[in-house]
Design a protein around this nucleic acid. Sequence first.
DNA 1: CCTTCTATCTTTAGGAA
DNA 2: GTTCCTAAAGATAGAAG
Lengths: 162, 162
Amino acid sequence: MGKKVKLAFITRDTARKATYKKRVKGLMKKLNEITTLCEIKACAIVFNPEDLEPQIWPSIQGVQSVLTQFLHVPEFVRHRKMLNHESYLKEKTQKLNEKLKKQMKENREMKMILQMYHYLEKWNIPEDLSIVDHNDLTCVIDEKMKEINMKMMEMDINDQRV
Amino acid sequence: MGKKVKLAFITRDTARKATYKKRVKGLMKKLNEITTLCEIKACAIVFNPEDLEPQIWPSIQGVQSVLTQFLHVPEFVRHRKMLNHESYLKEKTQKLNEKLKKQMKENREMKMILQMYHYLEKWNIPEDLSIVDHNDLTCVIDEKMKEINMKMMEMDINDQRV
DNA sequence: CCTTCTATCTTTAGGAA
DNA sequence: GTTCCTAAAGATAGAAG
């Protein structure tokens, strides 16, 4: 078995997906280990257009700071409103159905970014965390986190079964 | 050399620092590899009280520049304009038909994104998710997430290091 | 698709200089 | 602290079921 891979985009679809799945798992494990061994804080977020949801570690709150960085870029804020509406996307999809041509790489990147925008919108990351007024939405958030946790667990436990 | 380590806080200062340094480096390398191999977006932040600055991958500037660059890709802008000029599109229909296979795949993936939106809608994440007291929630949720993560990993790994 | 196997490559703990 | 070393542990590509 020749197992060494060149550090470059894996064009074979099946191979890339398999590698992604294995490596994302490995990455999260490494994060868990380093934070435990050294008692530090860390977070990571991975967007993959072929994943229905981003892989996050350890929680949404944990990655908010990362996403907040994105919102500080003026270009993002401007394009955000333009791209993140579902109706707009549906319209685009219809037209894609008829006529649109794009190169696959460009397409992959667009979807990834749309996914990002959508999550930014859903999570409603403030543009400046310092001005956030801390109300008492703790319970609501906690419930949502539990839902998400359960979803994540379901998804992983179902295909692990050891 | 007995090299197996218990997955727990390393109390010895020198050992912990050495491990941190090595593992942070390894983590960033893994991130670089997965994003290259799969052409996805990812980022991570590691906060260590003994480090003056958090370790960030890639640089915030790096992430921003990549995404900003995409938004300004000439092809992207051109295609957007194309959508608004029917005559131009008709002119291109013949050529587009040659790319039917790509179109179908692209369309399939777009629909997947719309499905994702629907899935997110069911989560019903409140608009004001961000108005949350980080000090109260982050620790609790992160700990819960880590517990879940650890359990998931334990289930999946033959080697037990507890 | 998903799992399991395993050869092979990579990471890293602990020393040593 | 830093860098190099190396054995052991860990991650994973590819194949097979």
